[in-house]
Amino acid sequence: MHPYLIPLLTFAAAAAVFTITPGLDTAMTLRTATTSGWKAGLAAVVGICVGLGIWGLAAAFGLTALLAASETAFTVVKWAGALYLAWLGIGLILHPRASLGTAETVPVHDDARAAFRRGLLTNLLNPKVGIFYMTFMPQFIPPHVNVKEFSLLLTAIQAILSFSWLALLVALTVPLGRFLSSPVVVRRMDRLTGGIFIAFSLKLALSRRA
Rank of each mutant, 00 (worst) to 15 (best):
K78W: 04
K78F: 01
W79A: 00
A80S: 10
A80T: 13
G81N: 09
G81T: 04
A82R: 06
A82N: 06
L83C: 07
L83A: 14
Y84D: 09
L85S: 09
L85E: 11
L85N: 11
L85G: 08
A86N: 01
A86M: 13
W87C: 08
L88W: 08
G89F: 14
G89V: 12
I90F: 12
G91M: 01
I93N: 05
I93C: 11
L94D: 02
H95E: 09
H95P: 00
P96L: 14
P96H: 13
R97Q: 08
A98D: 13
S99C: 05
S99V: 07
G101R: 13
G101P: 00
E104L: 04
V106I: 15
V108L: 12
V108S: 10
D111Y: 11
D111E: 14
A112G: 02
A114T: 14
A114G: 07
F116N: 12
F116V: 06
R117S: 13
R117P: 00
R118H: 03
R118G: 01
G119E: 13
G119F: 10
L120F: 13
L120V: 03
L120R: 04
L120P: 01
L120M: 04
L120Q: 03
T122Q: 07
T122F: 08
N123W: 05
L124T: 01
L124G: 01
N126D: 14
N126F: 06
N126T: 06
P127L: 00
K128E: 11
K128T: 11
V129Q: 03
V129P: 02
G130R: 03
G130N: 06
I131L: 15
I131C: 02
F132I: 03
F132N: 02
Y133P: 00
Y133M: 02
M134S: 08
M134L: 13
T135E: 06
F136M: 09
M137L: 15
P138E: 07
P138V: 08
Q139M: 11
F140Q: 12
F140I: 06
F140P: 01
I141F: 10
I141D: 12
P142H: 07
P142L: 10
P142W: 10
P142G: 04
P142E: 10
P143W: 10
H144D: 11
V145F: 06
N146W: 09
K148W: 05
K148G: 00
E149C: 00
E149K: 02
F150E: 06
F150Y: 15
S151P: 00
S151C: 07
S151I: 02
L152A: 03
